[in-house]
Every structure is written in structure tokens, then in C-alpha cells.
Simulated scan of single mutants.
Amino acid sequence: MRRAGIFFQPKERRSITILRRVVVIVVFVIVALWSRGMFAAPQAEAAMEAARSVRIYTEDFAPFNYITDTGLTGAGADVVREMARRLGHDGKFEILPWKRALQIVDDTPGTAVFSMVRTAEREPEYKWVGPIIVTRGWLYKMTDSDLDIRGLEDARKVAAIGVQAGGAAERILHEKGFKNLASLYTPGNALQLLASDRIDLWEASDLVMEHQRRKFEIDPSEIEPVIGLGTYELYLAFSPQTPDFVVAPWQRVLDELRGDGTFAEIGRKYGVIIPSEEAEVLSDGDINLMTR
């Protein structure tokens, strides 16, 4: 006679098999979660350390980022410096001519540059954090000029349009067939060139024009915008080879600045338009000719 409890009926055996499988799965999940917990912190810290090690470049171009007796200042510089501080980055930015800075960032992982306008042409060439500034671009002329400028076709006929060397305006106007571009390697004195008739038109943002107008003590009535070129958003642009996990912490701290009022405070200091959720965004049909 078989003793009770030693052998099981088929239904009982199936139940035990299922139970064993459930136990194995539960144990596997627990071990997996434990392992992820063990390695998640080191991985996150490694990503933060990489973000803190990014080499950042800019140029001397007021009022976005420029040199004073006390060091680098400007609306873009102040925003990026505060981002760096919150990340634990040393906040040391190398100042170079714009074209040289772009050459480095184009070719070198773990690098970034500011303040750069985000255009459709540039979209795949960088990884973007921003916007850090929003401004509006124009073609300007001196009020006493005899030029009659009513549109871009009229602008094609002048002798020289001053544009930032290596900037978006130079690139896009060239692609649109403009043959009369004067590339400016020292854009900080562009308004002087316009006032002395060395260029006929000057492409610049309203903020840049106002800064130079005050610097060179030119009356507001002496200069006028003739062609509006749209509203532009400026960014901190990372090299395309930089991993996303390095870029993401920078966007996170920028969002924090936007949320806690720091953006607004910096904006009031420089008189720039601080980006908001309601800020105008360029459509594909807009002319995007910002100087950066």
C-alpha cells in the first residue's frame, strides 16, 4: 500500500511545477533589480562627471558674451555660467574667434559653443540645449543713406552687406545667391563701419545694434531697420559626437533656471527677451539670418 503524501496526483504535480517557476521568476526579478540598483548610481555619477568635463567655447561679441575689465559677461555668458555652476562645472569658457570655435566643436566630442542660433541647416550638425536667449534680426542702414531698401531683392543691389564671418547670415545669404557679403571678423565695430559708409547694410539683432549704438554714442534717429529677418533663438550647441547622456544634464539645469526665475533676472539685467513657453518659434518658412 502506498503511503499518503509520498506520491502526488497529476494535477498536484502541475501545481508544484508552476509554483517553482513562479519562485524562479520572482528571484530573477529581485536579483535584476538589485543589480540595477548596484550599478545605477555609478553610471549616473559617470554621466554627471562627463557633463562637468565638457569644454565650452564662446566669442567676444556683445551683448551676448563679451570681455570687460571684470572678465566674460553678457546675457548668454551669465546663463551658461549659472548652468555650469549648478552642474559642478568649473565655469571656465575659452574665448576664440567664432570660426575657430566652430571648427573645434565640429570635430571634437565633449565640446560646446554659445551663443548659437538654431537654424534648419544647422539642426543635424549639433546637439542643442536651450534656448538661452531670444532676439530679433534686422538689416540696418543709416537714416541719411540714399538707399531705397524695400526687400531682399533691393539688398542684393548694394555694394556691401556686413555679416558676421562664419555666422548663419553669411552662410544662408550666400546660399541664396548674394554676391555682396562683407564678412566681418571683428563684429564689435560693425556699426562704425556702417556709419562711415564702409558697408551699406548691416545684418544684426536688435540687441546687438542697441549695444553698439550706445557704445559709439550714435543717436537712435541716425540708424533704422529696413528689413525684418525674424525672431531667433540662441542655444548652447554641443558637438554631434557628444553622447546624449552628457548633453541631458545641461538641459535639465537650464529648465531649472527657467522655472525658478533666474532667466527673468538675467534678462532684466541685459534687456533681452527671455525664452518662455509662449516664445515665438521660427517656422520652416521664415528667413533665418541671425548673425551667430
Rank of each mutant, 00 (worst) to 15 (best):
A47H: 08
M48E: 09
M48H: 09
M48L: 14
E49A: 09
E49K: 04
E49F: 01
E49Q: 08
E49L: 03
A50K: 11
A50P: 01
A50I: 01
A50R: 11
A50T: 01
A51Q: 03
A51V: 00
A51D: 06
R52Q: 11
R52Y: 02
R52C: 02
S53I: 10
S53K: 03
S53P: 01
S53E: 05
V54R: 00
R55T: 07
R55N: 07
R55A: 09
I56T: 02
I56K: 07
T58K: 00
T58Y: 02
T58D: 04
T58I: 02
T58V: 04
T58L: 03
E59D: 09
E59T: 14
E59H: 07
E59C: 08
E59F: 04
E59N: 11
F61T: 01
F61H: 07
A62N: 12
A62H: 11
A62I: 06
A62Y: 09
P63S: 11
P63C: 09
F64V: 13
F64L: 12
N65K: 05
N65Y: 07
N65G: 13
Y66S: 11
Y66W: 14
I67H: 11
I67K: 14
T68N: 13
T68F: 12
T68R: 15
D69I: 13
D69H: 14
D69E: 12
T70W: 10
T70H: 14
T70K: 15
L72T: 12
L72F: 07
L72Q: 07
L72Y: 06
T73N: 15
T73W: 10
T73E: 15
T73R: 14
G74M: 07
G74N: 04
A75D: 04
A75Y: 05
A75M: 06
A75W: 02
G76R: 00
G76C: 08
G76P: 04
G76K: 01
A77N: 12
A77S: 13
D78R: 15
D78E: 13
D78T: 10
D78L: 14
V79A: 03
V79C: 04
V80H: 05
R81G: 11
R81P: 01
R81L: 13
R81E: 10
E82S: 00
E82L: 02
E82P: 00
E82A: 00
E82C: 00
M83Q: 09
M83K: 02
M83V: 03
A84N: 00
R85K: 14
R85L: 10
R86P: 04
R86I: 03
R86V: 03
L87Y: 02
G88D: 08
G88N: 09
G88Q: 09
G88L: 03
H89A: 05
H89E: 02
H89C: 03
H89D: 02
H89Q: 01
D90H: 07
D90G: 06
D90F: 07
D90V: 08
G91L: 09
K92N: 13
K92D: 08
K92H: 12
F93C: 06
F93E: 00
F93W: 04
F93H: 00
E94F: 06
E94V: 15
E94H: 08
I95R: 01
I95W: 01
I95Y: 00
L96A: 10
L96V: 10
L96E: 14
P97C: 13
P97F: 14
P97Q: 15
P97N: 13
P97I: 13
W98E: 05
W98T: 03
K99L: 15
K99V: 15
R100T: 14
A101Q: 06
A101E: 05
L102T: 10
